[in-house]
Nucleic acid binder design. Sequence first.
DNA 1: CGCCTGCATTGATGTATGGTAAGAAATGAT
DNA 2: ATCATTTCTTACCATACATCAATGCAGGCG
Lengths: 193, 193
Amino acid sequence: MSLNFLQYLKKNLELTDTQLEQLFPRLNIKIVPKNSLLLRLGETRSYPYFVEKGLLRSYSIDETGKQHVIQFAPENNIICDRGSLYFNAPSKLIIEAIEETTVIIIDHHYTDYVSGLPGFHKKNEMILQHHVWYLQNRIDSLLGATAEARYLGFIQRYPNLTPRVPQWMIASYLGITPESLSRVRKELVTRHL
Amino acid sequence: MSLNFLQYLKKNLELTDTQLEQLFPRLNIKIVPKNSLLLRLGETRSYPYFVEKGLLRSYSIDETGKQHVIQFAPENNIICDRGSLYFNAPSKLIIEAIEETTVIIIDHHYTDYVSGLPGFHKKNEMILQHHVWYLQNRIDSLLGATAEARYLGFIQRYPNLTPRVPQWMIASYLGITPESLSRVRKELVTRHL
DNA sequence: CGCCTGCATTGATGTATGGTAAGAAATGAT
DNA sequence: ATCATTTCTTACCATACATCAATGCAGGCG
C-alpha cells in the first residue's frame, strides 16, 4: 500500500490518508516488460501513465526515420501524448519502456475520484504550469546552447538517470548524434572531469 | 464592450453574456507603447497578459549576450513568465511590445471572478494542455529539423505574423542567426516560391 | 531635406556538428 | 561459455550554420 503514487498524491495534491485508502482499490496498475510499447504511432485512444517503478520514454520519428526523444519518465513522473489524449489527433509519439516498468494508468477510475476533491484542479494546474516552465527552459537551451552545455545541463538535472539510459537516447534527447555525444564526453574527460 | 478578450472567454471558457457583463468593469486594461517592457529581467512579481491588440514577445538573454525569442504573442494570445508567476523565481524572461499593444492584465480581479465559475478549471486545463502540446512540437522540430524546415513551419503556422516581426526576431525564435535566415529565404526564392 | 540608426543582404571564412565506416566493448541469447 | 547483436568509440571527411565585415536600404527625426 505504500506506493510512490500515493506519496505523490499526498505531496502534490495534498490528499489525506483516508482519501488515499478510498482511492487505492480503484487504481489500475500494470507491469510492462522492457522494450515494450505503451503507445504506438497513430493510436487515438491513450492514457497518461504514472511511473511507479522503472523508466519510460516518449519519442517521435521524423521523415528521415530518425528518432527524437521528447521525454524521459523515471519513477514519480507522468508521461502521455497530449494530442491523442485531449485533442483526438492520432498519436505522433511512441511511448516505450526502457526498463521493466510498473505504471499506474491514469484512467477514469482515477480522474473521476480526484476531480471531485476540493482544490484538486488548482493543484493540478500548478503541476502543469511547472511542466510548461520546464519545457520552455528546454526550448531556451535548444535555441542557443552548445552540445556540451546541453549535455552538462542534462547530467546535472538527471544525475541518476544518466547511467540507466543508453547514450544514443540521451543524444537524441539533446538533439545531437550519438557520435557527437561520444566526442563531447571524451572532450570533457580530457579537460578535467 | 466588444473586446477580443470577451470573445475569447466566451469561446474558450464558455462564459455567458451576463457573466461577461459582470466581469467587464473589473478588467485591468493597459496600452503600452512600442518597444516598452512589461517585464524586466529578475523581477519577481509578474502577471499574465492577454493581448487585445498589438504584439508582444518574450525572450531570454544568454551568457554571451544573445537573445532567444521564447514566444510571440499577437492578438488573442496570453504571455507570461511562469517562473516569477507561480514559483517565485526571479524572471529570466523579458516581455516586450513589438508594436503598440493593448493588454488585459490577468490580475486577481479577473482570477477571483472566473475561478468561482463552474467548469472554469476544467476548461482552463485544456488551454494549458494545448500549450504543452504546442511546446512539445516546437521541441520536436528543434531536435532535428533543418533551419529551412523550421522556417517553413513558422510561416505556415503564423502566416500573418511574419510581416509584422523583424526577421532577426524570427531567426532568434528559430534558433539561427539573421544571416542564415536571410540565406534560407534567398534559397527558397531561387528554388521556386 | 539629409542624416542617423537599425535591419537585411551578400561574400569570405571558420567551426561545431553530422555522416560514414571500422573496430572495440558491452549486452543478451542459446 | 560462445556467439550475435547492439552500443560506444575513434578517425576522416562533409556540410550546415556561425562569424565577421562590408554594403545597401528604409524609416524616424532633426
